[in-house]
Design a protein around this nucleic acid. Structure first.
Lengths: 213, 213
DNA sequence: ATCTGATTTCAGAAGTTTTTGAAATCTCGG
DNA sequence: CCGAGATTTCAAAAACTTCTGAAATCAGAT
């Protein structure tokens, strides 16, 4: 569903001076042919995880690089700074900065301070149920709730004052809006409970259901 | 999150002859300013529903026009043919054809035959829980399952034969993959039950949970 | 077979989203 | 207050997705 394969870009920043990074770590390989970088089994497994997570993200409307950054932080399980992320994923500084801020807004990633280091470090939520609940919460707020509001609007629009529509048709129309509204509202309320307390709710509910069905 | 406002396009097809359509129905209005077309309360309400549904779709990775076509069929609640859809939504024949096929593949829309009419008509699933279960089913197959397989791969990659990685690190890494895998697998199995029987399962489960939590 | 209207296909156009990278801004230490 | 490094911003570029429309294909009627 897409290829990939970006080109390397210049790392030097603003000032003219050369920034003597501790040893510019060779890049990862993208897919086949040439391999560079540390290619231990562990590293290759991480790479696989990252790219599959990125893939999944992009089919769910999450920018690939956002999903990849998150995957990297999750799978490394330790705080990383922007430079490390840039090097590892081969994406630009601006992109990393913007994306980290968004992930932090969603609450999926936390900014941590490293003693005696001016850089910002970031680490990902490690509890998967917590992670899922954060995602659900964010999408619910950004997408489900506005849609519910819109459905209410559509409903009130339909029952406007004097007009020339067939009352039968109006009734059927409103019934359709209502059934959609009901279903989504139920999911909405349900997700409230699910995410009620730090993801544990989701976990519990899922176990519960699994046994009941 | 986007504008819209496409231009009208030529309706005439292949042959040179003029296709005398029964009266090219004026176009809908996009948002504000000029209004054309039938503007009854009912019509405006439908329009609102369609565009909000389209909006939502596009933030979930569904092409706007696909979401709109589905919304139109759902809210009209009757079989419609390609020409009606083109006129109403102002989208091209090719787009309509391709999209209808996809919706039909997902099972969200059904092709129905109208006696004595060579055209194909399409109608949308009217039961919302059924609809949701069809959507869940499709996404599960197309996205969740491949991801689960990929996680398994990543896991086996990590425990490859003789290599230089710290055994501690490998253990931690595998634990992470496992926790992700477990959570997603549980969701996966759960959705199986949910959609087990034509959407009713989903409905029942949701009611059940709502009362339990 | 042929004709006619409906449908599908697909290359290119249009539109949208994502990414880049360099300049602006911020922040801390001295 | 200045300098050095870190971060943010944002206009422009690249990449990707979706859409168009004309030509090809298909299918029923004659």
């Amino acid at each position: 569903m897409a290829s990939g394969c970006r080109v390397r870009y210049d790392l030097s920043v603003t000032e003219t001076a050369s920034s003597p990074l501790p040893a510019p770590q060779p890049t990862r390989s993208e897919a086949s042919s040439d391999r560079v970088g540390s290619n231990s089994a562990l590293q290759r497994s991480r790479e696989a995880f990252i790219s599959h997570w990125g893939e999944m993200g992009s089919s769910w409307g999450v920018p690939r690089s956002m999903a990849e950054i998150h995957a990297l932080l999750f799978i490394e399980g330790r705080p990383m700074n922007a430079d490390e992320i840039m090097d590892r994923l081969q994406i630009s500084r601006g992109n990393v900065s913007t994306t980290l801020r968004q992930l932090a807004d969603w609450g999926i990633v936390t900014r941590v301070r490293q003693r005696g280091d001016r850089k910002d470090y970031f680490e990902a939520e490690q509890d998967v149920w917590n992670l899922l609940s954060l995602i659900v919460r964010a999408r619910k707020r950004r997408e489900l709730e506005p849609l519910l509001a819109a459905l209410e609007d559509a409903k009130s629009l339909a029952s406007a004052p004097g007009d020339s529509d067939d009352p039968k048709a109006i009734k059927a129309h409103i019934a359709r809006l209502d059934s959609m509204n009901d279903a989504l509202k139920r999911l909405d309320r349900l997700s409230d409970r699910f995410i009620g307390r730090g993801g544990r709710g989701l976990d519990v509910a899922v176990r519960l259901l699994a046994s009941l069905l």
